[in-house]
Design a protein around this nucleic acid. Structure first.
Ligand code: FES
Ligand code: FES
Lengths: 144, 144
DNA sequence: AATATTTCGGACAAATATATCCTTTATTAA
DNA sequence: TTAATAAAGGATATATTTGTCCGAAATATT
């Protein structure tokens, strides 16, 4: 469904979000550890999220990554997925035709579009603050 | 969503199904042409579909690929996707955790599972015969 | 100012997915 | 029986994704 980069990216962002809600800033070492992700690869993904203005980074001692508290309920899963995987999953044809076109649909179009739209709706309406609540009280986990 | 191999495989199978419904057998050259897919790669995918007993192949002159008419409404999109991409898309965790577990869910689990289940339901209930009807009357297309 | 820490950026490496080519095998038709 | 045809299977090539490494730049602490 999502690329590895996107999976790591979402997990990392959620961890950073949780820490930011507590006023803490975290470095890539800790982020990788807590999300069970490869450290150097995670660092790369964090870089792209900074460029996409989803995360804020601070260099030097006591530096790391954080998220502006005010944006915790502005940033959605859609923002993350678009920044890392692009938007093919939302707009692309399920059978890989050059474009999805309901005037000249592929054989799965009518079956597929409603599911794709549900996914789109879910991702674009789910904010970080919604998700970190269950993380904080231990109902959800970022690694096994 | 699906791999290129799976996209090509579904398109190829639908074309073969359409031809089989008319009593025609088709070779890989024609299949690749009509589905706008790379020929040699398509040949490989057709091989795996034959091994998965979804297609039947016949060697030699006037040989090619076909589908038993009786199985046209038994074979589902799920059968194709499982044969080519495996079943991670049905059972795997949306965030890439080792397993999807509703007792210890990842942060997106509760949001994600219903969509994944809708996809599963759609794929497992959609048969080839359902799809080739709209192909034959020109409502749907296999290439642009 | 010097040093330690941490992200940034680029180059590089490995693994996987995508794609091609060529020889062998089976089958049909002449 | 011979020749032609088409899939099977293996080897190889290319592209993309995944992942690592290291020096440079920035910043906080001493
Ligand atoms: S045309 Fe294929 S999903 Fe819309
Ligand atoms: S645990 Fe992640 S989707 Fe179920």
């Amino acid at each position: 469904m999502f690329s590895k980069a996107c999976e790591y990216g979402i997990r990392a962002t959620l961890f950073v979000a949780e820490q930011s809600a507590k006023g803490k800033r975290t470095g890539v070492k800790e982020i990788a550890k807590q999300t069970d992700s490869p450290e150097a690869f995670t660092a790369k993904i964090l870089q792209t999220l900074v460029k996409s203005q989803i995360l804020v980074s601070v260099k030097g001692p006591s530096g790391g990554f954080e998220i502006d508290k005010a944006s915790l309920d502005k940033i959605t899963l859609m923002n993350l997925v678009k920044a890392i995987d692009g938007d093919n999953i939302y707009n692309g044809c399920g059978l890989g035709l050059k474009e999805c076109n309901s005037k000249h649909p592929c054989p799965v179009h009518d079956h597929f579009v409603s599911i794709r739209d549900d996914l789109k709706k879910m991702l674009s309406s789910t904010t970080l603050s919604q998700l970190i609540n269950d993380l904080e009280n231990g109902y959800t986990v970022l690694k096994r």
